[in-house]
Write a protein that binds this DNA or RNA. Sequence first.
DNA 1: TGACTTTTTTCAAGATATATACTATGTATT
DNA 2: AATACATAGTATATATCTTGAAAAAAGTCA
Lengths: 397, 397
Amino acid sequence: MARPERRTVRDLRKGNRAVLLRALYFVGPTSRHELTALTGLSAATVSNVTGDLLSDNVIVEAGLVDSDGGRPRVLLRVNPVHGYAIGVDVGETHVRVELFDLDMNEKAKAEFALRPGGHEVELVVRHILAGIEAVLADSGVAPGQVLGVGVGVPGIVESGPDALIHAQTFGWDAVPLGALLREGTSLPLYVDNGAKTMGQAELWFGAGRGSRNAVIALIGSGVGASIITDGVTYRGANSSAGEWGHTKIALGGRTCRCGGRGCLEAYIGAEAILERAGLPLDTATEQAQLAELVRSGSPVIDETVEYLGAGLANLINLFNPERIVVGGWAGLTLGHHLLTKIKKAAAENCLTQPFSTASIVLGRLGPDAVALGAATLVIEEFLLNNTTSPAREAAAL
Amino acid sequence: MARPERRTVRDLRKGNRAVLLRALYFVGPTSRHELTALTGLSAATVSNVTGDLLSDNVIVEAGLVDSDGGRPRVLLRVNPVHGYAIGVDVGETHVRVELFDLDMNEKAKAEFALRPGGHEVELVVRHILAGIEAVLADSGVAPGQVLGVGVGVPGIVESGPDALIHAQTFGWDAVPLGALLREGTSLPLYVDNGAKTMGQAELWFGAGRGSRNAVIALIGSGVGASIITDGVTYRGANSSAGEWGHTKIALGGRTCRCGGRGCLEAYIGAEAILERAGLPLDTATEQAQLAELVRSGSPVIDETVEYLGAGLANLINLFNPERIVVGGWAGLTLGHHLLTKIKKAAAENCLTQPFSTASIVLGRLGPDAVALGAATLVIEEFLLNNTTSPAREAAAL
DNA sequence: TGACTTTTTTCAAGATATATACTATGTATT
DNA sequence: AATACATAGTATATATCTTGAAAAAAGTCA
């Protein structure tokens, strides 16, 4: 029941513009000639549309390529300074704001520490707005050049103009973060769950590159997953899809911090691992503690690997992805030393056929990719709908 | 990273034709005027395209509607006899072939019993081909009027021209059913997993109508799920998505017939329930046995409800659907008497927010909807790509 | 019968992609 | 140095498409 849309003849141009821009963005410097093969468009249309894009300064020429006896090709590429994207990472311990050019080079950065338990909405909003000011000032980028601000936050984000957020760990219940931020800035806003933004970063620039059906598993203190279906982050009916951590893996088992019993997170979440090993909880040293557990070959780790493997197997059975990316700081710590065992555990708990087509790999971007991923929300919109330059129009208001 | 496509100006017409045809198919008799509102197209375009559709005999006029003082509206509808779709259900005990008109009225039916263990590919192929002949003869429909044949089979179906099938229960390993059938018929073929076709039937005509994000849970002897994302059946990288039955719900628990331990199917599959209740397995009476267990309030059933609820909760946490449809004969037997308890068990094992937006309902089509669903594969293609009448062209060869 | 209302069609205008012919810009050869 | 050749990119003519406005169609109501 796929619904086709498209109406007017003008949408055609818009669509083809998006097709070309996307190709240029992900493939990199390319000639018009190659673009015809890449997109299936005729040479004439490529010439036309790239002409538009050039005169809008969205793309620029990027040198020539010698040919063996013909006119040399002119390479085209996205103009990295045509616009900028701001990514915000709202984490448990900090608010981080980063400004990127279109090549995703970080041009400026601002960070604010959060006290444990100090997650008042007003404070976070103030930090974000101050961060935006700061990165703009540092980089010398004018607000009109910013295509938008992506924000990655914990919890469930209901998409909509208000961007209602439900985040248990922050004590946020239906907080309209979008509306609050809009009072302080006129830049276009894109708010999403941080695990999803990080997943999108891995998908675009990390271990998930090029896959159309993938799951990015994120294992830190909490456990989540970002599900990619047909190349797009799947959000479900209310943007809460991917709550892998609280799926039941051992019905009636350990009590989870969500209150339920037998959740996957109660076994493979970092805090749960340390707790099961009888170690005291201390956010400052937990990473070292976990690393030590892994190094010493604790039996708790063996058990964790078993649960993790089964959890991944469940994802493979349900989603039949071509790739599973294991990320998050705890996931990376486990994975760096135990990937083979994890794969083995997954194989044992998974149907043969889907397992054989799914490759399990480690994340490549590290745990700090939330802000980068948030910025990709802006880029995603830019690649899809840039009739002329919507952000500028909006900013001009 | 959604990839826009579309190229030429001709695709526009094709797309808008599909938009209108889909609207007419799912909304029913409608006037051109209403169609403009429904589709967002201009009145002129609606008039143009419906003109084409009328002259191609794809749609027909369906009476007038009085107006209060103006020209009466002419109702349009899909011409039910413009074409026909054949649906095939390959089950453990039978091969059933049904022929439907576009309104999904059954016009003819043929059924062949299969002996237990008698699932040789050649036999099944022979039955299917004989069934096609039979329903064509019975209904008097010419092969050229058949838009295609949809086939629902057990196991994993790799999409592709050969339609490779892996079905453990049938002892099929990479059986190229599509290729084999093509030797005996020139009709367009669409092969898919039977649980998915049944799910699509519920989605189109049953309890899933109108939902864009849904999961159809199918509980019979085996346990599976059909996942609907954005209104389309999600198949994953190799069409095996939705293997819910073999996800682990109790790591290290009961041994499943797949060989694994702790699979959901080992708890809520019909055979597993009977086995746990200490009853002898007998396919002839298992439905009655299960009903009796439910009626008598066996503790095994209570436990089953708990596992089923948790399994559904996992689906809700992962997919955040707006609707969960419980189907399959065992699912319906359980659901008819215990839906409240099942919902309660699901709520206890699910995050609050996604649970609150998911309604859990029972399937409406009964367990025999596999063939109907298989036929919807044909219709789906018809609604999407009917430039003139591809089936006729193909059949004319 | 004529005014009015609502639906549907017609028609001219504007926009698009493509194919084909053409121009631009290099290398290879004489 | 001049010419032929090869490849890249552009301009023009053509066929479609959607749309908005005007016109036509098909009724009701007084």
